[in-house]
Write a protein that binds this DNA or RNA. Structure first.
Lengths: 203, 203, 203, 203
DNA sequence: CATGAATGAGATTTCATTCAT
DNA sequence: TATGAATGAAATCTCATTCAT
């Protein structure tokens, strides 16, 4: 993450997005609390105080990063959930969608992973807990339908399964680098294969 | 995590362990950077300054928490790795051992998850990176052996598999609560079942 | 004090006066230090930076507000003092003149009340202290003449009386609202009646 | 207001009071907004940050200064109002009490004068407006009783009279210096004499 | 004339740490 | 061992001011 030195300035709503992208990158790399606004400003090629022309506070930066990400995530998820797919296809679509989001919002996802528990205690970030709840509902419902339909095993604790699948997917954000050798779809395919069929060979 | 008010003082090495347990709990809940030493002191029923009789610094607290945990972890792992088991049995034993460690050191594991990447940049915490390397070697080796032996699938990217298994196990620390309805062995059993055989029923 | 949104621009000396009036209003309401130039700009329907086309600095705004007010005040006072009236008539004329100034320059008077002591420490605002001195001279002189002539009581500490009359009149700026039910002349009449004859009925 | 250099430290609740006294002095002299916490700390012989061991914020300092003052003020006022005095005696007692408060809490009174309007807009300082209301009720009631009883003139606007008396008394805080040549009781006596009988001699 | 973006100085606040008692 | 009070460094934030467009 070398310091960028681009004195050529881009127009206005663009600039905001650029700055948020920079901030997200640093937050993801160092952790929210360990990141100073000065560091973000350095990275953006301006002085710390100048950031406050664009944002109210450091907090409002994470806020915007996380809520933008969640808005997009739910747009994708809602489409999948509304498509009337079977449980297995729903799981496949959700996982694929998740890896696409990781691909597009990797820093945001990483921040979400590391900081959401901690941030959610503040009223301002209540939407994080809300999202968590919705998430759980969507996944648990799908898994239950799948067990009923016989496309998922019925000998597993369903909440354990939920956590297994959820964590399995999202922690990928901690190591995923966009532009790597695998596309998000390819990673999703392999993950799904492991999650659905296991790493032991089917006889 | 209610505030303890015990003016009766326990002998010194005991006290130290108590304080570290308290600190670990708070670090895990709030994150290392977001935790003030005052908060730890509050929780321990003393004033911030008093902690410095017991510890050199806040850093030395995490240090001791993490290194104690890793020492124990590797004791367990090394035993497994030295036992001359087959790859599948090794995986089973490592996962089971991991859930036992989560059971005994949940806060430490949670801290490790959240902070190790960030802390590892400091020389003092070089052992975190070392451990990471050893860890990777142990798991990758086992998986490769397993593929060679035909007990693990050969159509998967092996690094992806490694990350999948590693993350899958350790993130459990973020939701695991000791004394819950499942013992660590039971959770390990179910996780292994999912990881090895998948969540789709074997025909 | 509603936000004005007039993009139609008035010629330049007019505009200047408008902006000063706006600034004075805000300074009076919030206090000089607590007023940000952004707030003034908001109120004037422009951006903070744009004010600097019209004025050198925030300081120069108060400066102009206060000196304009004091110039007018002394014009009125000097006329009264030069008129060769008796001490009682002088007091009546000065008080009436004062309430007229409050009527026309209420925000300026309020600012003067609240900030002059503090501002007077800066060389730029030396004229505030000068005015204070002239003011004191005029009033004390008039009161002394009145005592000598027997039209004011001689059993009172004359400096106390001075402060009493001075404060009594000027603090009115803190509650006076132009266009209220009493004209400045009517308020002056009642104030004079209280100051000269007291609030207890004359037997 | 010279910098005090007393390294000898006084015990604990005492220290708090000392610091508040120092802060009040500076706030009164410079205005709340124009006062930096560094300035207060300098005056107290410590570093700016050290003040935060004793107080949450600069705001909480004024808060404590003002509320302490108002509590004491109302203790005195309530005693007077409960004493069942006639209207004229009540006025005399209230004015005397007021000058005593000015004597004991001069900086607090000065701060109250200058900043209360501005501070009262914040929820935290709602009690300032409450006090204002109570104050008005007490004075207006007394004045009305007096008019009805014939001990005060009936040809004056009563609200004007109220403001006249109120301001007249409290602005004294801006020039009063404890330990001056007049005791608070003596000042109260002269003020009352002016307010009740006017500055023109009774024939 | 006004905007949008930034600067730079300084203000408040936080917090790990120290130390005399 | 613990307390109470402070230090000192750094972090967040504020704001008057500048300037190219």
């Amino acid at each position: 993450m070398p310091t960028k030195k681009k004195p050529q300035v881009t127009p206005t709503p663009e600039r905001r997005r650029e700055l948020l992208a920079t901030a997200a990158e640093v937050f993801a790399a160092q952790g929210y609390n360990a990141t100073t606004v000065r560091r973000i400003a350095d990275e953006a090629g301006m002085l710390a105080g100048s950031l406050y022309y664009h944002f109210d506070s450091k907090e409002s930066m994470v806020d915007e990063i996380l809520s933008t990400f969640l808005d997009e995530l739910w747009q994708g998820y809602d489409e999948v959930l509304a498509a009337g797919l079977g449980p297995r296809e729903t799981v496949e679509a959700l996982v694929t969608e998740s890896f696409r989001e990781i691909d597009r919002h990797r820093p945001a996802v990483a921040i979400y992973q590391k900081e959401s528990q901690h941030l959610a205690t503040q009223p301002r970030f209540a939407y994080l807990a809300d999202s968590q709840t919705r998430f759980e509902k969507a996944w648990l419902g799908t898994l239950e339908r799948g067990v009923a339909d016989g496309v998922f095993r019925d000998d597993l604790d369903i909440r354990l399964t939920y956590r297994f699948v959820r964590d399995t997917v999202w922690v990928a954000a901690s190591w995923y680098r966009p532009g790597g050798q695998h596309s998000p779809e390819e990673i999703a395919r392999q993950y799904l294969s492991m999650v659905l069929d296991g790493i032991a060979p089917r006889t």
